[in-house]
Amino acid sequence: MKAVVGFMVILLGVSHGVETHCDGRHDGAQCYGALGGTVDIQLMDSTSEISRYQLLKNSLKILDVREKMILSNTIVHRSVFFPSNGTFRITNLSRTDSGDYTLQTFDSDGKSSGVQILQLFFQAPVSSVLLVSECLSQGERRVSCSSEGGDSPQYSWTLDGRTLTDAEILSGNMKTNVITLKQHVSGHLACSVKNLVSKVSKEQRLSTCGFIFINCTSVNGTQVSGWVYEANNILCIEPTTEPSTTPQTAVEIGHLPLISGVLSTLIIFLVVVVAAVCAQRKKQNSKTKEEENDQEEIFADLRVVKQQAKQLEKRAELEFCRVKCSKRPRQTEPTIDDCLYVNVHKFR
Rank of each mutant, 00 (worst) to 15 (best):
L266W: 10
L256P: 01
Q54T: 11
I90Y: 07
K111H: 06
G110D: 01
N343P: 00
C191T: 06
E291K: 02
T102R: 14
G17W: 02
Y53S: 10
V132Y: 04
S207N: 11
T74E: 13
R95N: 08
L302I: 12
Q223I: 11
N215S: 12
I70Y: 01
G149I: 12
C135Y: 05
N85W: 05
G254V: 00
S79V: 02
T246M: 01
Y53Q: 04
T335C: 01
K2G: 03
L206Q: 01
T158Q: 09
D40E: 13
E333C: 06
I62S: 00
N173I: 05
Q154V: 13
R52S: 11
P83W: 01
D301A: 12
T105V: 10
A3W: 03
E242Q: 13
A300S: 15
S15M: 15
K2F: 03
K194H: 04
L103Q: 15
S286Y: 03
A34Q: 06
K287Q: 10
Y32A: 01
F269R: 01
S59R: 14
T241M: 09
E317W: 03
V76D: 06
E317K: 08
R78D: 09
E67P: 01
V251P: 00
L93Y: 04
S112K: 13
I234D: 13
D338K: 08
F7Y: 13
S244A: 02
N177A: 08
A124P: 03
F213P: 09
V4P: 00
H184E: 09
N233F: 02
V115F: 09
D45A: 04
M8G: 09
T240L: 02
E67D: 15
P125G: 07
S171M: 04
D337Q: 02
R205S: 08
G254Q: 12
R141V: 15
D107V: 10
R162Q: 14
C145D: 02
T240Q: 10
S72P: 02
S218I: 03
S79R: 02
H77T: 06
D338S: 07
H188L: 12
R141L: 08
K68R: 14
F269C: 13
K287G: 00
E333H: 09
F88H: 06
K327L: 10
D64L: 07
C339R: 03
I298R: 14
L235R: 11
T102D: 05
T87K: 09
S84L: 11
G149N: 07
L164D: 08
E333M: 09
L55F: 05
V271L: 15
E242L: 06
H26G: 00
D166R: 11
Y155V: 04
F121H: 15
S84W: 03
N92Y: 10
S264P: 00
D45L: 11
I41E: 02
I237W: 05
Q284L: 06
T249C: 07
S15Q: 12
K182E: 09
K282C: 02
K289T: 14
S260D: 07
K283Y: 04
E148T: 13
D107F: 05
S225M: 14
R162W: 06
R322Q: 14
R162V: 09
K310D: 08
T246K: 05
V224F: 01
V65H: 00
V18A: 06
D338A: 08
S79N: 05
F320D: 06
T217H: 10
E290C: 01
Q183E: 11
L43W: 07
W157E: 08
G28T: 00
T176N: 03
D294S: 10
C135V: 06
G172P: 04
